[in-house]
Each structure stands twice: as structure tokens, then as C-alpha cells.
Design a protein around this nucleic acid. Structure first.
Lengths: 235, 235, 235, 235
DNA sequence: AATGAATGAGATTTCATTCAT
DNA sequence: CATGAATGAAATCTCATTCAT
């Protein structure tokens, strides 16, 4: 029990070191800059060892993104838990500020998350993450009865506008106060627009517990990809 | 003049052929797939010759993007010319539909423009294009007196939201009708929001000639990078 | 004795499992395909453990070949035991059919035995096996007085022609009947040729017991390489 | 015309240098020893340049074998041209001695030709060469009316026995005189055997011109594979 | 001016083998 | 004794770029 601990701990540390290095490389020059060699020399872990933890180069990027998303997911959930009555507007507000706080707390990741331009192979990963988020938003919105028949542009677009808003904010590097102001304005803009379609319940809101239940029922389970020792494929 | 014509003509044709090939490669597999070799073999122009027209690989990508933007610029200007009274709302509408038409007419380029994930070197290009567009929007808006003191999020953010809207629309491949509906909604959402800050003149509008004058006075001159014979050949 | 039994048994089983896996890999893709990793993953025995049984990769191949040869040796001896009067011709016939039966019974091994192209390190193994066989043939022939002064091409060449005959037969995959017919013809060809040099005793033959005695006296002892615990572990 | 000459000449020299190096590597340690790296460092030609001439590693081996065979083909044809009346026996004799002379003249190649153990990918090459030779032998034999209905083991097997005979001879390194004696004996053995099935014409023979005509009509055209600059495949 | 040829540098991935537990 | 983990060393192949003609 304790015997295996150190090994596991070391493993986890190494994976973390690799992902950290990946982040630096990505931030510095996008996917093209993330080479196995530079990863190795930067992290001090031999290439061959990296391949024990990740199937191939793309798996590293995927793992990095996955991990980042999980962290954001976490922050969002926490933020939602803190609201008394969840409405479409307050939900957007909470989500927005969760993102904001996360990025303000992990500024190193910002450049990567927004700036990294991905190759075709990893693109799907990102699409899936976006889709997951959109589907959660969509599901939660309808599921909680906030909105009955929405506008043509649905959750997917909102997620993307969202994403861009943060990208913009963080790449233009304003003061935290301004960042917050902008986020609030965009929330206001979108929420105002959406409220045209809101149901009475949507304006009144529900408890955060209820909302989280809906959210969980809807969202596809996170994780499940990446970062596992390659199963020594026969031939 | 006539003597050199064929050469010049050939040059232009070759550049066009290279950029066409670049588009295909980019669309097919992103920046990583755009190799000088594949470019050469696809376009039928030897690598060494390509280097006579472009400084390096990145310059090719930059040139491609530049050219694409010019084409959009063109469409936008034409659209604006068609409006009687230009207001913030009608301007956005015109611009949006210019984009829409452009992309609908050049579907091959869509994947590139939105989907291409760029490397660090080219990223700046895009940033600059975005900035140019934002600055034009900003300048025009204030210059024409549409808005006095705007919201915190300014032209830059709008441009980005914009961009994402189109990306979303075209990557999710809906019908032209739906595409239009969505664009209209986003225009409505943003315009409605902006009108909170509008001046009377902004709501009333100005003539398209006047607007275009302002626009031209403001916008940074397009072009200026890429596609020029390499500097003094060494030795 | 009984206490250690299970361990020894397990050892033997593991060695067998490794060699079995080796056979598959060899058959599938030649020496290049026989990697320690694939061996481990296929046999379910960890690489490190394989190294407890075999000094290195080449030792595995050597052991495989050794084992295969032993099996053939066995079959040959049995075949000879079944003959009343052993002459050069009947001996060749018996040996040939022993090979034939062996390969027909173990078709998986055929591709390996004949088809595997060996690397330099293992080549010697095969040379030695061939030499052993040739020396046995030679010794037995002269020892038993079948032949006095033979042709220039001696036992060595016959062994090789032999080998090729079987390779040909099995790689061209004919029906068992045809295989037998071809073998008989080659036996006939060689025997007829050799009988030019035969002594009266050679044409008359001797008892199989006597012949086997001669054979054993002559042949170099089989085995001796491979599959032994690695020498004194360093440190 | 002359302008391009030097280039072509240099190219040819380089290809030759590469194949020479390939020969050394193959002779020294079989296919496994023939690595692109060692090839480059041995021949002094950069890896990247080697790849201009050969599609990949296997193509190099294939080219080497092809070239060797062509050389033998040549020698055989010449030998046949020197015979007055071609019979099965004299043909075999001529062919055998052509091989003999070739190998005696190019002793460096012997180890490779016979000793090299090939990987699965190249194996086919060799099989094809063998098949080509066998088909020529078969075609010529029947075509020239030497033999009507042959024994079960046909041309294919003879070719292989052949091959092995030479391998044996050259690997056991005897004196040229002994080598010749052995070859003669094997020719005698096979020819004697085949003459059982010979037609009168086969025993009488035909003119070498006629025979060569038959041979050419039968054999598949040599060459045609390997060693050409890879056609810059578009992605 | 145009280009076939050349190439240094590096990319990704795998191997055989050895430790440390 | 057994073995998961580690790794130096190499393998194959490609790329962007530059010469030499």
C-alpha cells in the first residue's frame, strides 16, 4: 500500500512536469513549437520516458487541454453552488466570473487556452470540449425551464462568443477591474437578449441544487481520454 | 512595357498558383500541412522558384490571409455603398451580410479562414488584420458620431464576436437561410446593445458617401507585407 | 525436490511460452519483427523476466532454432529405427520423410525455419546446425562403409540441397502427395548419383541398430547453447 | 547536352557510392546492419540526399539486388552465346560457369548475395528474381524442346538447388579448381537426372542463336524496379 | 531569371537493455 | 525472484532553405 505510493507519486509528478513543459511550449509557439525533443529537454525527462506516459505527441496536447478544462469545470460548478436563485442571467454571471477568476489565477494558461492554434489532429478535441460545454448550457437552460423556444443562435454560439470574449479580454491585457466590467457588459448584452425568450420560471430562477442536478444529468461526463500508459500494443 | 508584360503576367499567375495551392493545403490540414514541398509539387512550381516570390514559408501564409482579407474588404465596401442612410445598425447589417455573401461564394476558403490554426509567426498577421478591422469600426463609429461614449467592450471585441459568429455558422454548416437568420440575430443583439450609447446622429444615420470617407480616413492602409522579391540577393 | 518442482515447472512453461511467442513473431515478420517488447506483450511475460531466461535477443532466436532442430533430430532417429536394412538410399529416404512428416505436422514452423532471414549474429547458429547435420551424414556414410571415395561435393552440399528442397516444397505449398513425389525424386536423383561411388556394403546396407550406433558416435552432441540463467549477475 | 552531363554523371556516381556502401553493410551484418545512418556516414552522402535517390530503405536493398542480378544475367547470356549446340546439359554447364565466373570476379558480392538474410519487405524482391530465373529456365527448356514432360520438381527447384550449390561453394571457400569440380558434378547430377526425360532434340541440341531467341521470348524483362528519384509525392 | 539538386537540422518514435523496488 | 519503470541510443524519414548551374 505504501510501497506503491512513491512510484505513483513520482509518476504523477512526472506527468505534471510534462504537462507543465507542454504548456510553456504551447504558450511560446503553438503546436508547432511543442516537439517531443524540446519537451524532453525542457522537462528534463527523456523522450522515451515521455512515451511511457503518452501514446504520442497529440496525446500530450489532448491531455493538457483536458486537464485545463477540468479545472475550469470545477470552478464553474463551485461558482454555481454559491448562487441563491439561479436564473439565466445569474447563471451566465456566475459562469463568466468563474472563468474570469480561473484565468486570473492561472495567467500562464491563458495564452495557451486562447492563443494556441491547434493542428487538425487535436482540433477535434477542442471541438468536443466546446460541444460539451454547449450541450451543458443548452441542456441546463431548457431543462431548468429558463427558456422555451430560443433564438436561432443557440447555446453553441453563446459558448463561442463567450470563449472569444475571454480571449479578447486576456489577450488585450487590461486591468482586472476593466476585465470585470467587460465581462459584465457582455453578460448583460447576452442575457438581455435571451430574456426576450425567457419563461416566467426563467426569470424567477430555481435553487442552485436543483440547477446542478439538471446540469449533471445533461453534461457528458468529463475526462476519459488521454494520459494513460500506452498498452504496449502487440506489434 | 509590352516586352516585360509576359514576364510580369507570368509572375502574377505564379503567385496566384502558389496561393491557390496554399489554400488547398491549409484547408486540408492546417498550417502543419503547408510544406514547401507539397506546395511545389501541387502548384507545379519548383521550390526554389517559390522562394523568389516569398521570403519564407510564413510569408506565404501571410500573403494568403492578406489576400483573403482584401477580398472581404472589397465586399464590405461595396455593401456599404448600397445603403441609403448608414446607421450603426445598418452598418453592422451591411458588413455582416458582406461577410456572409463572401463566405457563401467562396466556401473553399471558409475552412482556412476560420479553421486554420496558425503558428506563432503568423499569428501576428491575424492580430493585425483584426486590429485593422476593429480600428476601422471604431474610427467609423466615433468619427461618424454614431456613438459618443461606448461600452467598455469596444470595436475590438465586436470584431472578435463577429468572427466567431461566422466561424460558428460556417463550421456547423446550416442552410443559407438559417445562416442569415443567425447573423441577423447577432446583429440585432449587438446593435440593440450599442444603441443604448448612441447619439441622435447615430440613430439617424449619414449618407454612405460620407461614411465611406470617414472609413477611409480612419482605416490603416491595407497590404504592405508579403509577396515582394526578396531583398538584395546576397553576393 | 518436490518443493522446488512448481518453480521449475513454471520456468519451463515460461520458456516455452517465450519460444512460442518468438515463433509467431518470426513467422509473421522475420527477425526484424521479433522485438523484446512484442515478445513480452504477446507472451504475457514481462521483458525483465524474459531477460532472466535469455541473455539477449539473439539467444532467444538461437534457442528457438535449437529446439526446432532437436525436434527434427528426434523424428529422423525414429525414422531410421524403422528401417530393416539401412543403405545410402534408404537412409536418405528415411531422413527425407522424417523431415517431410515433421514439417507437415508443424506447419507453423515452416515459415520460420525456411523463410526467416537471419541476422549475422544468429547466422552462426544455423551454420553450426547445418554443419552438425552434414557431419553426421558424412560420418555415418563413411563410417558405415556406404561410400569410400565420394564426389567432390560432399555431405555439406547435400544437406543444403536438402534444405532447399524442403524450403521449395513448403513455400510453394503443394499437396502432400506432390510434396512426397518431389522428395522422392530428389532422393532418387541424389542417391543415384551417390551410388556411383558406393561400396558393396553401401548397396547391401546394415542394420539400423548398427547404423544408429555409428551415427551417435559421429554426430556432435546437440544442444549446449542458449537458455541458461545469465552468468554471474554483475555486482 | 554536355551541360547536363556532369550532373548526371555525379548522380550516377552517388547512386553507385550508395549501393557500394549498401553492399558493405549487407555483407557485414545483413539487412539489420543496413541503416540509413550507417549508409550515410559510410558513403559520406547525407541521409537527406540518399532519400533523393531512393524512396526508402527497402528500395536501396531492392536496387542493390536488382543490379547484382542484371550483372549475372549479362554473364549468363554471354556464356550461352559461346556454345555451339545448346542442350540441356551444355546449357546448365554454361549457366553454372557464368555464375561461377561472376562470383569469382566479384567476391565482395558473394557474401551478400548468398548470405544476406532479408526482411519480409524485401523477400518478395528475391522471390521474384528467383521466379524470373525459374521461368526462363522452364520456358527455355520446353520452348526449345529439350524436355517434354519433366519430373515433378521443375525449374523452380533446380534454380534453388543451384543457388544453394553456389552458396555452399562460396561460403566454404575452396580453391577455384575445387569450386569448378563441384559445379561440374552438380551439373552432371542434375543433367543426368533430367536426361531421363529428354526428347531427342534435347539430346541433340539447337543453335545458341535459336536458344537465345527462345530465352528472350520467355523471360520477363529484367530491370524496371528501383532507383529512381522519388516523384515528390504530393502529401 | 529559373531551377534541379543538395543538405543540416531536426521530427517522431522504438528498441534492447538495466535498475530499483 | 519478479517486475514496472526508466532510458540512452538509435532508426527512419522530412523540412525549410540554399547552392551551383
Amino acid at each position: 500500500m505504501t510501497r506503491r505510493e512513491p512510484v505513483q507519486k513520482r509518476s504523477r509528478e512526472r506527468v505534471a512536469a510534462i504537462l507543465k513543459a507542454a504548456q510553456e511550449q504551447l504558450a511560446a509557439g503553438g503546436v508547432e513549437a511543442l516537439t517531443t525533443r524540446s519537451l524532453a529537454s525542457y522537462s528534463g525527462i527523456p523522450v522515451a520516458t515521455i512515451y511511457r506516459y503518452f501514446e504520442d505527441r497529440d496525446a500530450i496536447i489532448a491531455a493538457y487541454l483536458e486537464r485545463e478544462l477540468e479545472s475550469i469545470d470545477h470552478a464553474v460548478e463551485e461558482a454555481l453552488r454559491g448562487i441563491e436563485r439561479v436564473t439565466f442571467r445569474s447563471m451566465m454571471h456566475a459562469v463568466a466570473h468563474a472563468h474570469l477568476r480561473h484565468h486570473q489565477a492561472h495567467p500562464e494558461g491563458v495564452g495557451v487556452w486562447f492563443g494556441t492554434r491547434l493542428n487538425a489532429a487535436v482540433h477535434d478535441s477542442v471541438r468536443q470540449l466546446d460541444a460539451r460545454m454547449a450541450s451543458a448550457l443548452h441542456g441546463a437552460t431548457r431543462g431548468a425551464g429558463f427558456i422555451e423556444r430560443g433564438p436561432h443562435f443557440g447555446a453553441g454560439l453563446i459558448v463561442r462568443l463567450w470563449d472569444r470574449t475571454f480571449e479578447h479580454i486576456f489577450r488585450i491585457e487590461r486591468s482586472p477591474a476593466e476585465q470585470q466590467a467587460i465581462v459584465d457588459e457582455v453578460v448583460d448584452m447576452i442575457a438581455t437578449y435571451m430574456e426576450r425568450y425567457a419563461t416566467p420560471a426563467g426569470l424567477d430562477g430555481i435553487s442552485s441544487d436543483d440547477f446542478l442536478k439538471v446540469l449533471r444529468r445533461t453534461g457528458s461526463p468529463p475526462g476519459s481520454r488521454a494520459q494513460r500508459p500506452p498498452p504496449d500494443p502487440p506489434r
